[in-house]
Design a protein around this nucleic acid. Structure first.
Length: 769
DNA sequence: GTAGGGTTAG
């Protein structure tokens, strides 16, 4: 602080003072002077830290034979006092002392950790100008730092600079840059470097091949990945455990479990032993596809080497399965219990699964609580866990805070990865912030992160959902131009977009194209097409698709049935609607809350309110949880046709499913207007515009009509006392809910908590346990 | 240089 704030004069004065002291007096008094020089008078963090640093500096200087600045600077670096260490370096330069190479390498690492690239480049420039000449280690430290930050351009430039300093880049340096290219989605750049590498007489090693194979799998390019694998074996490079881990992961991600297991077998036949990555990858695949029962024989293989205890494995598998089944509370409870019992810490993986499951479902508070327990248990959160927290914020529409977290992650050198950008991009589209999404896309490119298949798919999906089909198609073309292989997500998003646009024939053409490209249309594709056909009233074709599903190895699921039931209900074709309800139960497919909501809605529309009431009781009795749609549907019926039981039913639903949204407000406004309470409706709309709730097109249409209505009638209409007070009551509780929601007190944690928690130390490589 | 639900349906 003193040095940075004190101005040039004071700075010089202190320097001379220290120098004179060091030269004239004993070593001990020089140490005292140095301490005044480097350690700011005001404590930076806490007194304890300061004392420790002073002690460390004294000790370093006493032990060292170097001129006293360098050990002092090293001690400052060890205390994370980077600015002070930089000023120590300036003193050395001013005294024409040459700091050693190891000191420079240490400083580079600290500067990367702090994200201070500007200082780093300045130090490097000075180093090149006046020595010491950078060696292999210096270059590699710099290249690694730039690669971690995603600055592949600088990393590659340094690579080609190395020969000019008398040290030709080795395979390690090449691999770092090649890996960075792949991580940031520039497979082409990676290939170019591999070629250039061969020209310099440096042969690719197993790492080079592993990185390339991984990148190709991530692109979905299995054919090319296999070719590179063969080339590797031919050129005499032996595949290792990591090679197989990459291959197995690639297959699992594509749902090709059979191929994954074949690779696993091949691996063991080669005498390679699977490690924790192999295990986690395969188990994740089995659990994901609901086949955890079959993992047993593989586990035995892994357990033979006693890498894991059976209990630990079972706990992980159990927790992963629960998360897939949306039973996060149970999983979290088990985790907390096993922490308390103190008999073995649950794995990071287990924590990660639950945190992510919570975040995905929008339970950000629970996600954060668990994150806190994880950090308290001494487990380092990884970039993946931070991404999950980011997703939690995005799924709750808290984009601004997500942006803050993202900046913090980038600042930490943590994760300038595609994943975080993709989450943010998707988050923007979810809240309808299209220009925000465009900015994220640009920002991603600006960071030198080339979008991959997932990022492109998320972008295309966002455009499709916004009904910007022309743009979506353009982006799709761009994706193909970049040599990326579209996957099911990509096609399904486009097909959905065209169906919503009423262009089913284009959707069907895309489905054909998908098959031609070797992709299997899945249950999503089929449901989307069925829905599209139903929307067009083409029930015959929709039924044909339904009949053919089984031939393609697909089983209709609850969404398929709901689509048919809902579509038939909409056209008042109750005969066919009932027929699909029967088919559904015959197939043993359980109705979910949407099925009930559809059915309750059509009962309400047919003015069969008492039946609707019965249906609400029934769904609760079978353990289905009513949601906002249930509430809105029933209230719509209640407002339409007030019956004696309205208050009881309302009270019941308020207790179970009162999470009002814009649809709730719209339906209340509509009914107020319908009941001649137009003036009150307008008054309430004004009040609702004061709370954080975004009106949609429907709201504006309702209000347009209301204002016109008031102009015509002058607002004089009869009204029934009972109805009016009931509607007023509903309006009151709804706006109260919105107020409470916007009140910061209702949030149990703040984004600041996340940033201060677990960010103290730069995450190390995460151990599996 | 490796994992961990980044993106899809009613």
């Amino acid at each position: 602080m003193l040095l940075r704030r004190g101005g040039l004069h004071q700075h010089r004065h202190l320097t001379l003072h220290a120098t004179a002291a060091a030269a004239a007096t004993t070593r001990t008094s020089a140490i005292d002077d140095l301490l005044t020089l480097f350690i700011p008078s005001a404590p930076r963090i806490n007194p304890l830290h300061r004392r420790k640093t002073l002690a460390r500096i004294s000790r370093s200087i006493k032990l060292s034979l170097l001129p006293p600045f360098e050990p002092a600077a090293c001690a400052l670096l060890a205390s994370e006092m980077v600015p002070e260490a930089l000023s120590a370096l300036r003193h050395m330069r001013a005294l024409s002392q040459t700091p050693s190479l190891p000191f420079h390498n240490l400083l580079f690492r600290s500067l990367f950790d702090k994200g201070d690239v500007f200082s780093l480049l300045r130090v490097f420039r000075d180093m090149v100008a006046v020595g010491p000449a950078p060696d292999h280690l210096a270059f590699e430290a710099l290249i690694l730092g730039f690669c971690r930050r995603g600055d592949v351009g600088r990393a590659e430039a340094l690579l080609w600079l190395m020969p000019r300093f008398g040290c030709a880049p080795g395979v390690v340096a090449f691999n770092m840059v090649i890996n960075a290219c792949c991580v940031f989605g520039r497979a082409l750049g990676a290939f170019a470097i591999v070629c250039a590498m061969a020209e310099t007489g440096c042969a690719p090693d197993v790492v080079t091949y592993n990185v390339l194979i991984g990148a190709l799998f991530r692109e979905g390019n299995v054919g090319e990945a296999k070719k590179v694998f063969e080339e590797m074996v031919e050129s005499g490079v032996e595949p290792n455990t990591r090679t197989y881990n990459v291959v197995i992961d690639g297959y699992v991600k594509m749902g090709r479990l059979k191929d994954a297991v074949l690779a696993f077998d091949e691996m063991t036949q080669r005498g390679l032993s699977p490690d924790c990555y192999t295990f986690n990858t395969i188990v994740a695949g089995y659990v994901k596809f609901g086949r955890e029962g079959e993992v047993g024989h593989l586990l035995k293989e892994v357990l033979r080497d006693e890498l894991f205890s059976a209990e630990e494995l079972e706990l992980d598998v159990l927790i992963a399965r629960m998360c897939w089944d949306d039973q996060m509370d149970k999983a979290a409870e088990i985790l907390r219990r096993s922490l308390k019992d103190d008999n073995g810490t649950p794995s990071i993986l287990a924590f990660h699964s639950v945190i992510t499951a919570y975040a995905r479902s929008g339970f950000e508070t629970e996600a954060f609580e668990l994150y806190r327990s994880m950090v308290e248990a001494g487990l380092s959160p990884s970039a993946s866990t931070c991404n999950s927290l980011l997703m939690g914020l995005c799924r709750n529409g808290r984009l601004r805070e997500a942006g803050v977290l993202m900046d913090k992650m980038v600042e930490r050198g943590f994760c300038t990865s595609k994943t975080a950008f993709t989450i943010l991009l998707d988050g923007c589209f979810r809240v309808g912030d299209r220009s925000g999404a465009m900015n994220v896309w640009k920002e991603m490119e600006r960071h030198g992160v080339s979008p991959d298949v997932v990022a492109f798919s998320a972008f295309i999906n966002g455009l499709c959902v916004s009904n910007w089909m022309d743009e979506a198609c353009e982006v799709f073309e761009e994706m193909l131009r970049r040599g990326l292989f579209p996957n099911n997500f990509t096609y399904n998003s486009l097909i959905h977009g065209f169906c919503n646009d009423g262009n089913v024939s284009e959707a069907l053409r895309l489905e054909k194209e998908m098959r031609k490209n070797g992709l299997q249309p899945d249950i999503f594709t089929t449901n989307i097409i069925i829905s599209g056909l139903c929307k067009q009233g083409r029930f015959k074709s929709a039924n044909d698709v339904f009949m053919n599903m089984c031939d393609n190895g697909l089983t209709p699921d609850v969404i398929t049935y709901n689509t048919f039931i809902g579509s038939y209900c909409k056209t008042l074709d109750m005969v066919n609607a009932v027929s699909f309800v029967n088919k559904m139960s015959l197939q043993g497919c359980e109705p979910d809350i949407t099925t009930y909501n559809i059915w309750i809605d059509s009962l309400c529309r047919s003015r069969m309110m008492s039946q609707a009431v019965k249906m609400v009781d029934e769904l609760v009795s079978v353990g289905v949880v009513p949601n906002t749609v249930t509430y809105n549907t029933v209230m719509n019926g209640v407002c339409e046709d007030v019956l004696d039981r309205a208050m009881i039913l309302t009270a019941k639903l308020l207790k179970m499913a009162f999470v009002p949204n814009i649809v709730t407000v719209n339906l209340l406004l509509t009914h107020m207007c319908k009941q001649g309470l137009t003036e009150r409706a307008v008054m309430w709309a004004e009040r609702f515009s004061q709370v954080p709730l975004t009106f949609n097109e429907t709201t504006f249409n309702i209000l347009d009509r209301a204002y016109r209505d008031l102009e015509w009638t002058g607002g004089i209409r009869g009204e029934e006392e009972g109805r009016s007070s009931f509607m007023e009551f509903l309006m009151h509780i709804t706006i109260d809910y919105m107020y409470e929601l916007s009140h910061p007190k209702s949030r149990s944690w703040d984004i600041k908590d996340v940033l201060d928690y677990g960010f103290g130390e730069l995450p190390k490589a995460i151990e599996a346990r």
